[in-house]
């Protein structure tokens, strides 16, 4: 796919994490944390109780992965920072999640499209990282690989229901797919951190996941009678801490209590 990248994205990692191993673990921890935060917002507001429970469960899986990875990042860093220190006291530039996961929930179709894109990425990602030389990362990936298959099943089934359902649901789902498409290429862009970690046997080159992702997503969209977007514009930079405006609001809410009353036990 020819990709048009926006100009103005700074090159290289944001300052603060000179250790690529810490950086790598944080990126994947942050993806899971921010998506968990987004999904949990559906709790008590979903279209029906079964969906409420499903989205909450999926959010909990992501939160579990995030906690293990942030804890590991703190250990590797050796500075004594806990999962909560890393979750609650970093700013927008220091978060390294994909821009996709910080996008607002929107309507249910938007949430499902976001999950479809991310789940289709996480299935091969976790499978490949299951043999990482970082044992904690490998453990999270092994557990995550099983969970991600269920997540993908859920987001795929809903994509098909919405795409194939009514005229309204079809239109909403197509709009959601079109709007979020520009955040998908970022998942497969390898930078120096990725290359160094792949070399060290800790990580993988994310560009190797693109084929399987595209296959799975195309299959789901075809079955849903939806059109695969051809928009070549792609936004990236989350891995370098160059986010969309949305992340600051997510963090503002998530971090508010700890920042108001720092240093206490809760």
């Amino acid at each position: 796919m020819a990709v048009t990248k926006p100009s103005g994205v700074p090159q290289g990692p944001a300052p603060g994490y000179p250790d690529p191993h810490v950086e790598y673990v944080l990126r994947h921890g942050d993806d899971n944390l921010i998506l968990a935060q987004r999904l949990s917002d559906w709790i008590s507001k979903a279209p029906d109780l079964e969906v409420d429970i499903a989205l909450g469960n999926i959010g909990l899986d992501h939160l579990g992965a995030a906690r293990a990875l942030l804890t590991q990042a703190g250990e590797l860093e050796g500075s004594g920072r806990s999962e909560d220190d890393l979750a609650m006291f970093r700013n927008e530039r220091q978060f390294k999640n994909l821009i996709l996961v910080e996008q607002p929930n929107g309507d249910f179709a938007t949430t499902i499209a976001r999950s479809l894109f991310f789940d289709a990425y996480q299935v091969p990602l976790w499978r490949e990282l299951s043999s990482s030389d970082d044992e904690v990362l490998a453990g999270v990936a092994q557990k995550g690989a099983m969970e991600a298959r269920y997540h993908l099943l859920h987001s795929k089934q809903w994509s098909v229901r919405l795409g194939d359902g009514t005229e309204e649901s079809h239109a909403r789902m197509q709009t959601a797919v079109d709007q979020l498409w520009r955040f998908t290429d970022e998942m497969f862009i390898a930078d120096l951190v990725d290359m160094e970690m792949a070399e060290a046997g800790i990580g993988i080159d994310p560009s190797t996941l693109a084929g399987e992702w595209r296959g799975n997503v195309t299959e789901a969209l075809d079955e849903a009678d939806l059109t695969v977007p051809t928009d070549e514009y792609q936004r990236w930079g989350g891995r370098q801490g160059f986010h969309s405006d949305h992340l600051g609001h997510v963090l503002g809410e998530m971090q508010w209590l700890q920042k108001s009353y720092p240093g206490l036990a809760w």
């Binding site: 029906d48 969906v51 249910f108 919405l162 194939d164 359902g165 009514t166 649901s169 909403r172």
Partner: peptide, 10 residues
């Protein structure tokens, strides 16, 4: 959520 439930039924 009505449109979602309708879509699932359809």
């Amino acid at each position: 959520g009505a449109w979602v439930r309708e879509a699932a039924l359809a």
